[in-house]
Computed example of a mutant assay.
Amino acid sequence: MEKIVVTGYGIKAPGIHNKEEFKEALELGICTMDILKGLGPNDADIVAGIIKDDFLTIKGKNYKRYPRVSRLAIQTADDAIEMAKLVGIDPSRMSVVVGTATGGIKEIEENAALANDIKKYPIHGLNLADPHTVSSAVAAHLGITGQVFTITTGCAASSDAISLGKLLLESRQTDVCIVGGADASLGKWSIFGFSKLRQIGLNKRIGETGVPFSHAHRGFVMAEGAGMLTLERESDAIRRGATIYGVIEGVHSNNDGLGMFQSDETGYGMYKAMKSAIKKNIPTYVNSQALGLASNDQIESFVHERLFGQSVPITSIKGMFGHTFGAMGAIQVISSLISIEHNFIPPTLLTKGEGFEELPIVFETKHCPVDNVAITTHGNSGNNTCILIGKY
C-alpha cells in the first residue's frame, strides 16, 4: 500500500507559536508551564499550560463568536497548509479530521447562566455544544468541501484523527487530509472535575506536579494546545514537489471495553496497540504519554519493559508543556518529526524517575540519528492508540 506522508504541520502550545520555538523548547528542555490563579476549588491556584494569544482574528476574518478550541484549530491548520505549500488542490478532494476531548466546554461553562433567559441566550449557544463545529470551522476557513469528521475519543482523539486520515487517503476517498487535534479546557468545569478525582494538584509550584515517571509526585498539568498535520499519498506529494517531513508507518487503536468509572490498569490493551502499530520495527525511541498519573505511567512502563526492555529509550514531553488532552497525540507526532529532522531525543523534564528506575528514561537531550519514533496515547473510557512515525 502506498506510503502516507506528512508535508506540513502547525503547532500551538503553551509558550509555543511555531516550529522554531517548539524545536528550541524540545532540544533545550524548556518548561513553559505557568500558574493559573484562583480557578481551583476555594480559589486555589493550579499549575497549567496556558496559551496567551486569543486568535480572535485570523487572516482578517473575525472569529470572536467561535469557541477558543475552534480558533486554535483554525490558526494551526492555516500554519499546516502554509508549510505544505498547498495551492490549486480541488477542495472537494480535501478532507478535515480534528480530534478534541472537551470541545467548547469553556464557553459552555461561561454561558451556562444565560440558559434560563431566552433574551440573553447567545445565538451561537447550540454551536458551542456541538464538538463537530471544531472541524467544520476549519473546513469553512480553508474552503474545504470534502469529508469533514470530528473525533471525540478523549486524549487519544488526535491520534485517532491521524488514523482516520490515513485510511481515507489509502482508500483514495481524498487526496489531502488535514488532521490533528485541539483543546482549550482551562475552565472551572474541567478543573473542578479533575480536582474531584484527585488528579491535579492545588496550590502547587511548577515542578511539584505534572511530573512524568515519578512516584514521588502526584497529578498531571492541564494545558491548552493544538497540533495539525497535512497528510498526502507519497506519489501526490512527489508530483507537486512537496517537502516530505515523515511517514505514518503504522497506527493501531483499541478500547478496553470497560465502563466510565473503570480502566484497564494491566496495560494489555496498550501493549496490543503498540505491538500492532510497530509490527516488526524497533523504534529509535518511544515518545510516551506519561504525564504524572500513577496508573497511566505504570501502564507506559509495563508496555515498554515487555516490548523493549532497556534497548529503546523512552521520553515524555509532558514535563515541558503539560497535557493538552485531545491535541496531545498530534503534538507528540510533530515533536517526533522535529526530532527526526534534527537528530535528537528530547528530555523528560522535572523527574528523577523515582519508582521507574528500570526504564531507560531520557533525562538529558540526546543527540543521535533518529529513524522512527513510537508514540503512545490513552483516551478517557479506554482508548489506546499508538503511532509509528518514520523518517522519509
Rank of each mutant, 00 (worst) to 15 (best):
I144P: 06
A137I: 03
N384A: 05
E358A: 13
E234C: 10
F356K: 00
I74T: 00
K279Y: 13
T133I: 13
K318S: 11
V87I: 09
R306W: 10
S185K: 06
I345P: 09
E82L: 10
E354K: 12
N296W: 12
G8E: 02
M228Y: 05
H141A: 03
I299P: 01
P346F: 07
G103H: 07
L202V: 05
G329E: 04
G322N: 09
L164A: 10
S288A: 15
S253D: 04
A84G: 08
I299W: 07
E20C: 00
T348F: 09
A223E: 07
M270H: 10
H124P: 01
I389R: 04
F363G: 03
P67R: 00
S301I: 01
E232L: 10
A77N: 02
A226F: 09
E82Q: 14
I244W: 03
K64F: 13
L26M: 11
Y121E: 00
P313S: 01
L258S: 00
P91E: 03
L167E: 12
K12V: 11
I35D: 01
N42I: 01
D79T: 00
R65G: 04
D53Y: 08
H124E: 10
E20H: 11
N343Q: 12
T152P: 05
G40L: 06
N116S: 14
F55Y: 15
T365F: 09
G181A: 05
P369F: 03
A139L: 10
Y268E: 14
C31G: 00
N383A: 12
G146Y: 08
K166I: 01
V97W: 06
N372V: 00
H367S: 13
L349M: 07
I16K: 02
G165Y: 07
